[in-house]
């Protein structure tokens, strides 16, 4: 009994908050997803699975899942390889190591909004005085309308480089931490066996030893890409500009549930439930792989 009181003294405040702000919303939204809930959160007309059927046959929603896949197909491998390369380079030097690590990590201080501002209005603004077009002009190339160009879809280059700049440092730090946990005697043993210092030790010692870190990084990247919102919203603009451009799932949910066309919580909730199930699947897989 004494323990019970002490336990709730410590855990109680958090547990109440978790209940009210995490579990109640989830249950409420599960309920809303079975109702016609336009502009109301206390709906009365039960529609069964119709919201789900609507969402799963809704072209824009399905294409938003496709968008996520395209985005992930570029951003996940690129971030992985470049972050690992930076970590290996930084980890191998001694002079100015802290300086380089700080420089690559510094973008983490920027929000996606600030990065979108720089990318949209300064680097890739599509006019002659933009940085990217200035550089192109040095090579005699014509300016490109980066963020409004759909064929070829140059806006993908804008979105992918933006996210790369923002997140590379974070994952580089994770890889450096992983590299520093590798026991040094493994390398010494390999050198005695005649392994070269470059590719062979990387392939047979470094990469296998980094397995846990690598799996964590890939899954963190996947979940992060899935939740992409900020840069798509800020670089590509409002819902009016959307149809020709790709939009990720959260952007679509945002406009369905809270957009200017009225608040549709039924469809919005059904979409949220579908996304949650998909992400929970990925995370369960993560737990399975890491604890194995």
């Amino acid at each position: 009994m004494r323990n019970g009181r002490a336990f709730w003294l410590f855990v109680g405040p958090f547990a109440i908050g978790l209940l009210v702000f995490v579990y109640v919303p989830i249950v409420w939204s599960l309920l809303l997803s079975f109702f016609d809930a336009r502009n109301t959160v206390t709906p009365t007309s039960f529609v069964g699975l119709r919201n789900y059927a609507d969402m799963l046959t809704d072209k824009p929603f399905l294409s938003s899942l496709g968008t996520f896949s395209v985005f992930a197909a570029f951003i996940v491998p690129l971030t992985f390889v470049l972050a690992l390369a930076l970590a290996l380079l930084v980890n191998q030097i001694s002079f100015m190591q802290a300086f380089f690590r700080s420089v690559f990590f510094l973008p983490t201080a920027c929000s996606y909004v600030v990065a979108s501002l720089v990318w949209k209005l300064s680097i890739f603004n599509g006019v002659r005085f933009g940085l990217a077009n200035t550089v192109l002009a040095w090579f005699g190339a014509e300016p490109i309308a980066w963020t409004v160009s759909t064929s070829p879809p140059w806006y993908w280059l804008v979105l992918v480089t933006l996210r790369l700049w923002l997140q590379l440092g974070f994952y580089m730090i994770l890889f450096i931490a992983g590299l520093q946990r590798i026991p040094h005697h493994l390398y010494e043993a390999a050198w005695i066996d005649g392994a070269s210092r470059g590719w062979q030790t990387l392939r047979h010692i470094t990469l296998p030893q980094l397995q846990t870190t690598s799996v964590a990084v890939v899954l963190l990247l996947l979940v992060a890409a899935y939740q992409a919102f900020d840069e798509f919203y800020n670089v590509l603009g409002t819902d009016r500009g959307y149809p020709p451009f790709a939009r990720p799932p959260l952007i679509y949910l945002y406009y369905t549930a809270l957009g200017s066309g009225g608040q549709d919580f039924g469809h919005g909730s059904a979409g949220a439930v579908i996304l949650t199930l998909l992400i929970a699947g990925v995370t369960l897989l993560q737990g399975r792989v890491i604890t194995r």
């Binding site: 547990a15 978790l18 009210v20 702000f21 995490v22 579990y23 109640v24 919303p25 989830i26 409420w28 939204s29 809303l32 959160v41 979940v223 939740q227 919102f229 959260l250 949910l253 945002y254 549930a257 809270l258 919580f265 919005g268 909730s269 979409g271 949220a272 996304l275 949650t276 992400i279 929970a280 995370t283 369960l284």
Partner: peptide, 22 residues
């Protein structure tokens, strides 16, 4: 109950949370 919430990123549940908070 705590660990179960780790599988659900807060960003994805912004619609339900908005319903409660509003």
């Amino acid at each position: 109950l705590v660990v179960a919430t780790l599988m659900i990123p807060a960003a994805v549940t912004f619609v339900p949370t908005f319903v409660v908070v509003s």
